[in-house]
């Protein structure tokens, strides 16, 4: 196994182990609030804050937290930071808070955050945990913004509130409605699968130096 360093821990979350497209975690917020680009971005930012802060705390307290009750402790820590985000957004950005509604509070049960605490922050020093949390959260934010952007462009004919196609564009209303979320993410997963397959095929071709056989696999 290669040595862990800050840069690689940071970068892996953005692309290689992207929480939404590769690990398929944190689905509920990534579909529920992404009917416009700005909502996706706001949700990503809120998750970023919660994930980074709780990673710092969990990583710093890892020797104090008793093993049998660790999950409850993580949830408690996460819930505290979510409460902070919830109240700050309500005070400073009431419009966004209203648009995201109950889904701000639902960050508590985002499996991505709990997953990072259990898999990374509880085993690694603070610095690495921050890098990992920032990378993962940034990857999540990018994914949400991308999904939100696609849905807003197709469903509303605009991006970040600016009209793109002029008055003759007939918006695909379905894209901003719930089914559109499933279709967008399904399509994006398909694109990622294509990239993954192609990369694997290239690796195999380099190893074997044999032409690839299409069709059903022979075991």
């Amino acid at each position: 196994m290669s040595e862990k360093n800050l840069q690689s821990e940071f970068l892996k979350g953005i692309w290689q182990e992207n929480p939404v497209f590769v690990a398929v975690l944190g689905l509920c917020p990534s579909l529920a609030v992404t009917n416009s680009c700005i909502n996706g971005l706001a949700m990503g930012a809120a998750t970023f804050f919660v994930l980074v802060c709780s990673s710092i705390l969990v990583s710093a307290l890892k020797s104090v937290i008793p093993k049998p009750v660790r999950i409850s402790m993580y949830v408690l820590i996460i819930a505290t930071f979510v409460t902070i985000v919830d109240f700050s957004l309500a005070a400073w950005l009431p419009d966004i808070h209203k648009a995201l509604g109950a889904f701000i509070a639902l960050i508590v049960v985002n499996c991505l955050i709990l997953g990072r605490q259990e898999a990374f922050a509880s085993k690694n020093p603070v610095g690495l945990s921050i890098a990992d949390a920032m990378g993962m959260a940034l990857g999540f934010t990018l994914a949400l913004t991308l999904i939100g952007g696609i849905r807003e462009i197709l469903g509303n004919g605009s991006l970040l509130g600016f009209s793109l196609f002029g008055p003759h564009f007939e918006p695909w209303v379905i894209m901003v409605l719930p089914p559109g979320g499933f279709f967008t993410l399904g399509g994006l997963l398909m694109v990622f699968q294509y990239w993954k397959d192609r990369k694997q095929a290239r690796l195999r071709a380099e190893q074997n130096r044999e032409p690839l056989v299409k069709g059903p696999m022979v075991v």
């Binding site: 089914p179 499933f182 993410l185 399904g186 997963l189 699968q193």
Partner: peptide
Amino acid sequence: QDLVRGAAMNFFIAGILSMAFM
């Protein structure tokens, strides 16, 4: 198609179901 099999297809099925429930 192999490309769609797995997660992507489940999402498309869910999308169509969601449309039906609308």
